[in-house]
Each structure stands twice: as C-alpha cells, then as structure tokens.
C-alpha cells in the first residue's frame, strides 16, 4: 500500500488505550421471531444467540467453534450489525455500536469485514475481479492512483496472478475464489475480519493454503480475526483463544492450549473427544470415547436451566433448574455448575 493512503487510514484508527480490546461484546442476544397465520403473529422465537460475551484484542484471533445451528453465523452477523441484537453491548474501540448513528456506523463498518463459507455465492458472477475487489474502495473514496494498481496489489497480496483482474469468478477454482473474497475483505484495510467457515467448502489439500494465507496476512497487518468453524482442528491451528458455543450460549472460552488440553465444560470435553484424528504413535491409544446421547435440542424450545443438561454425562439436579454462571480462572471462563 502506498504510504499516503496508509497514513490516512492510520489516522482514522482510534487511539487505543493500552491493553484494551478492539472488540468487546457483552450478553448479546439475537432471537428470530417465528410467525404463524395470516396475521403473521409471533408465536415464539428461535433463540439463535442467547447469551454470548466475548472480546478480541488487536492482532488476535478468536476461534468460535460449535456444531451447526448453535448460532455462530448469527453471532458474527450481530457483531457486524447485520442482525439486530435485542440485548447486550458491542464495543468497537470503546464505542458502543448499538448506539451509533448511521454515518458513524458506516465509518466503523469499513473496519470490520467478513469472509463467507461459500466463495462462489459471495461473489457477483457478472462482475469481474477488478470491480469486485475495488468496489469498496470506490464506495469509501479511498482510490488513489488507478483501480488497476489497487487491484493488482491486492491480487499479489493474496497470491493470485495480477493479470487475472479482468476475469470472472466462474473462471477460478474454489480456493482461488476464496482468495478473491479475502482480497475484497482486505481492500479496505480493516482491523477485524470475521471469517465464517472460510475453508469448510475447500478440499483438504487447498484448505492448508488458505489457512496459511490468512495467518500471513494477520501477521503482516496485525489483523484481528473472529474465526468461525465447526472444525476444532482447523480452529486450534489458527486461533490464539477459543470460544465454544452450544445452543446460543458461549459455554467456555480461553487460550487455545487450555481449551484443547484442559477443557472444563462437559460439552467441550465431548466435542474434543469426538474429533477423529490420526494417532500413528498411539499416544492416545487408550482414549476413552465420550459418546453423547441424543440430538441437539431445538433452539426455539431450549431446555430449562443449563442448555446442555439434556445431553450432559455429568448432569446434576441443579442443572435442570438453574442456568449456571461464569466461573473464571485467569483467562479461562466456563459456564457450568460443576
């Protein structure tokens, strides 16, 4: 990036008091109304996100894991303001996003970008690559020099051939399309990128390339990521800290090593145990299998008390009656009665 633009963008960044987080969210709740009948009366709610608090520091990657339908995408979209939270607080550089007016919000939006799971549907098939990856720059009037220069620079950054800027999305493979999405997210020099299952649709041999690219860019530009995935192995590889979600709740969070090696919540334990993994040295040979019973309950009719009590191998009476509060030790927090 040329230095002039760089300085300009830097100026826009907030001065951060030391050690404060880039993004903090408290007690977020996002429900979707279930409507019935001709009058479309609301008969209930899908509690996609019920209780979720998190923070992400500058340059840090927070992994968000959990099984499908647990609310990961909704939480990500809520942080971006794409879904409306019915409760809670989202602080970005100390400003509460839920209280900003439209023009203030627009400025902040530039600094939070998103990469989706399916790289093809996220790209407009009728736009060529140069238009796709410089659209945001034009919108925010950040173009200096030619669009071609910007586009070529971005293509280089994500490891694509700069000559390809006049091609269309369908001419690229899945991995290359995801690189295009990354280039687009990168174009506005964001502070935070929400990566929603960015490698889940890719082949195993291509996944590693994209994960490496994301790690390189993070280190080069001190980016922060919220890295959403159902795959704990992928998350453990890229995230500094991990938050585990179940039925709209963040049930445990902490440094990646603590979560992987010393999980506290019975759900996290089961999740880690269930990941099939090669073990040629037979270190874990006698790993005892934890098989959870039953299915994940519906988020429109969640269980009372602790969300996990219907499947928890260690359930006690109190779990059915009262929702647990957070127990913290250092940076490791867990919502469980145990």
């Amino acid at each position: 990036m040329d230095t002039k633009q760089h300085v300009f963008l830097r100026k826009m960044n907030c001065k951060q008091p030391k050690k404060s987080s880039l993004l903090e969210a408290y007690d977020l709740q996002t429900w979707f109304p279930i409507k019935r009948g001709i009058l479309a009366r609301t008969v209930g709610y899908v509690r996609a996100v019920d209780i979720a608090s998190l923070y992400i520091n500058k340059g840090e990657t927070l992994g968000l894991v959990g099984e499908s339908g647990c609310g990961k995408t909704t939480l990500g979209r809520t942080l971006l303001g794409l879904e409306k939270a019915r409760r809670g607080k989202i602080l970005f550089c100390g400003k509460n996003l839920l209280e900003l007016n439209r023009s203030e919000l627009r400025k902040i939006r530039r600094r939070m970008q998103i990469i989706f799971q399916d790289p093809l549907t996220a790209l407009n098939p009728r736009m060529n690559i140069i238009d796709i990856i410089t659209e945001g720059l034009v919108e925010f009037r950040l173009i200096e020099g030619t669009r071609e220069d910007h586009a070529k620079r971005l293509m280089n950054e994500v490891g694509l051939d700069e000559e390809a800027i006049y091609r269309y999305p369908h001419e690229f493979s899945g991995g290359q399309r995801q690189r295009i999405n990354i280039a687009r997210a990168l174009s506005l020099r964001p502070d935070l990128i929400i990566c929603d299952e960015p490698v889940s649709a890719l082949d195993v041999s291509v996944q590693a390339q994209v994960i490496n690219l994301l790690m390189d860019l993070r280190d080069r530009y001190n980016l922060s990521y919220l890295f959403i995935s159902h795959d704990l192995s992928v998350v453990s590889n890229i995230a500094h800290r991990v938050a585990v979600m179940y039925l709209g709740w963040i049930v445990e969070h902490g440094p990646t090593g603590d979560i992987i090696n010393n999980p506290m919540h019975p759900y996290t334990k089961a999740l880690i145990n269930a990941v099939p993994r090669p073990d040629p040295n037979k270190i874990e040979h006698k790993r005892e299998r934890i098989i959870l019973k039953g299915e994940i309950p519906s988020s429109s009719d969640p269980p009372s008390g602790c969300m996990f009590h219907t499947r928890c191998p260690e359930v006690m009476n109190i779990c059915r009656e009262r929702a647990p509060l957070e127990t913290k030790s250092g940076m490791h927090g867990v919502w469980c009665h145990l």
């Binding site: 493979s173 991995g175 041999s205 704990l232 192995s233 453990s236 590889n237 990646t256 090696n261 993994r277």
Partner: peptide, 24 residues
C-alpha cells in the same frame, strides 16, 4: 505424505501448515 502433512492437527501449536501447491 503431503496429504497427511497438510491436515491441521488438534493441538495448540501454531505455525504454517505444509500445504500442497496448486489444485486438484
């Protein structure tokens, strides 16, 4: 060999993965 090396491992060790260049 390359496939086994490119798989992310469940562990807290970070670092670049050994990717297979190109695509299928």
């Amino acid at each position: 060999i390359a496939l086994l090396e490119s798989i992310p491992k469940l562990s807290a060790d970070k670092g670049r993965l050994k990717a297979i260049p190109g695509q299928v």
